[in-house]
Design a protein around this nucleic acid. Structure first.
Lengths: 271, 271
DNA sequence: ATGTCGTGATCCATATTGTGGACCCTTATG
DNA sequence: CATAAGGGTCCACAATATGGATCACGACAT
């Protein structure tokens, strides 16, 4: 038993994450096969295991795969430690109401940022470039860039290096130098701007959310078509985002201190 | 490739669920070995895989295992489908304030009920029989019994049969006939009562939460020492719980209909 | 100091376990 | 009614996980 081992577990967990990224819409087997790089029998076998454990469910009629109840239970149990969504929800709703555009919370997950929630705007022309579950390398997209820019310089370099292959392969508009420049601009401005680099005409403004120790753990952002994000409105929205980010940070700090209250070990029953 | 297969995945997912049941407190390796029935090298190897994927984290200093960020992300992505906690949170807080006792939301997970959140009461003498992450077979404990009693009779029998081994092994005070009687009493009364059967002197009152289709998916409950749960107060609390359960059900019904709005398939980037 | 118990982590020969190319079935499509 | 696209499955092959034994560390107790 050296370092690695348990390869089927790695693959299964990768699949599970993949199903999660499609939550809400559901995924077909062939999409999963394609995105995971596994082959059909293997993917299916692992999905059966995930279903046995309740982490994934399959719609009998459409045969599409969705996250299962156990995934939800697990996340709820992890919430005291990482509960960004529950504290950011109010802010996202408020932002979307105030701006009439779609608002988002994203969370940092290692080298990428994942969109946890999208609150639909009321303005009739909307961009659907970002949806719940979508992920982008840190630095690509408004929220994602806001998170990156809030990291220490050394960490930024580590992240960019680790992301280099993905960036080169799938984000042609994002060479590392461009991201470094964006980081500088973000810091100078106070908010991150994505001028339609992922989907043309779909612009975004984002601000980072930090934990009690000052580490960037996520971001709030707003997306709209380019004509609705001219510089003066950018700055306005940037200020709104910053104010809401502060509120979220306060709630987080409060709950985190509760969480770190020592809890005595207790006997338990297990199934 | 017949029906089963992917056994290491089954074990890994079992371990993951187990770590979740200890979330907040963290678990040591030996506890996991004991509770999972695996042996040390295997458990460790699987935990390494879970850590590689970010579902589990290990505290460098204490070597205890906790749920990781990916678990949280996954749960947040599953929330639109199963979001009980986010809709019940308000009610639980209110219940705990009103009664001064500890209040809980539990969710049904197949044959058991899992406590998703405990809101501490203010009354100085408190029972700690139920904590976040603990699970009991359906029928054992106030919330758990409330859920069971809300199921169709046929399903109750199926559940009791499937749970028979666990009940016999770990719940000596809960023979199936006793549970059947409790179900009848619960239905007659309108709320479930646990008269200290899991931990002596720790009583509980619970009411089920149903989804839009009338299926019991979880429960709200209150726990206190026996002297604080004499019959008149039981009934009072039962009414409070029923009122809050209705509120949660309304929020759920609303959000569920939003969820089922068709969403067009969209191209995505994946890491 | 030093013995010993509890816990965490790891080695490595064994055989059980997963792998994936080829194939079948069902449902949409022209 | 042909054809394709997607979902699901078989089975010979070999790579993979398994777990008893062992080591490493820290916390007491002597």
């Amino acid at each position: 038993m050296d370092f690695s081992g348990a390869q089927s577990v790695d693959r299964a967990l990768g699949l599970l994450a993949l199903v999660g990224r499609h939550a809400g819409r559901g995924v077909g087997l062939s999409t999963l096969v394609e995105e995971s790089g596994l082959n059909k029998p293997t993917a299916r076998r692992l999905l059966l295991a995930l279903m046995r454990a309740g982490f994934v469910e399959q719609d009998e009629a459409t045969r599409r795969y969705y996250l299962g109840a156990e995934s939800y239970v697990l996340g709820s149990l992890a919430a005291p430690r990482y509960g960004l969504l529950q504290f950011a929800m109010d802010s996202v709703v408020r932002l979307s109401r105030q701006t009439q555009d779609s608002a988002f919370v994203s969370v940092r997950r290692d080298l990428v940022s994942v969109c946890l929630h999208r609150e639909e705007g009321t303005y009739p022309v909307r961009t659907h470039a970002l949806q719940t579950g979508f992920e982008h390398p840190l630095g690509c997209g408004a929220g994602s860039l806001a998170i990156l820019a809030a990291l220490p310089d050394a960490e930024i370099e580590t992240v960019l290096e680790a992301n280099a292959p993905v960036l080169a392969a799938s984000y042609p508009l994002y060479p590392p130098e461009r991201i470094r420049a964006d980081v500088a601009a973000t810091r100078a401005r106070g908010y991150a701007l994505n001028p339609g680099l992922i989907v043309a005409n779909s612009w975004g403004v984002g601000v980072a959310i930090r934990d009690r120790f000052g580490r960037a753990i996520g971001a709030l952002s707003i997306a709209a078509i380019d004509t609705r994000l001219h510089p003066p409105r950018q700055a306005e929205i940037g200020a709104l985002l910053a104010a809401e980010a502060t509120r979220v940070e306060q709630k987080l700090a409060q709950r985190q201190s509760v969480y770190f209250t020592p809890v005595p070990e207790t006997p338990r029953k297990s199934a």
